[in-house]
């Protein structure tokens, strides 16, 4: 009996973590749409790649939350890793660590330019990298706490 109680609280811990990831992804989506559609900052190619990784999470994670389905974490991971890599590349481009020639986005909106900076260092690519890092870590924690529960109950 005690075991089952413990299992369900661990279960709900896992649920809470995935829910938190959904909150992060949704906030990120809304903020990025606010900057592009309302403030009308230009969206460069690399930003689009990160959006491709972020936006689907808003739709697919709730499907894994109701009812709770741990596989959702597995399905979300490739997107998160892809988005994280794109964000890392973008941050390096902005920082000037990746040379002009290696950039995929010379035409149209240059990705090396940033239009918005908070507290002197927090530009949009950095925010994106932080978000993807946090999302990835939370998903790993959710997965871990779920596996722990499962092995305990068996």
């Amino acid at each position: 009996m005690q075991n089952i109680d413990k299992a369900s609280t661990m279960h709900s811990r896992s649920w809470n973590l995935v829910f938190l990831v959904w909150v992060l992804a949704t906030s990120g989506t809304v903020i990025s749409l606010f900057f592009s559609e309302i403030v009308q900052l230009p969206v460069c190619v690399l930003c689009w790649y990160q959006r491709i990784a972020l936006y689907p999470l808003v739709i697919m994670l709730p499907l894994g939350l109701f009812p709770f389905e741990v596989n959702a974490i597995r399905y979300a991971m490739p997107l998160v890793i892809f988005g994280w890599l794109a964000a890392l590349f973008h941050v390096l481009v902005v920082a000037g660590l990746i040379p002009e020639a290696a950039q995929p986005c010379v035409q149209g909106v240059p990705c090396s330019e940033t239009h918005f900076t908070l507290f002197g260092f927090l530009n949009i690519p950095v925010m994106s990298l932080l978000t993807f890092t946090l999302i990835g870590l939370l998903l790993l924690m959710a997965k871990k706490s779920f596996t722990r529960t499962s092995t305990q109950t068996v």
Binding site: W15, F19, V30, F34, I38, F66
Partner: peptide, 21 residues
């Protein structure tokens, strides 16, 4: 309950967005 939590947070994010706009 989880569903109420989800719906209220979704609504909150929506309201914050509308407010910010």
């Amino acid at each position: 309950n989880n569903k109420t939590l989800f719906i209220s947070v979704a609504a909150l994010i929506g309201l914050v967005f509308i407010g910010a706009v």
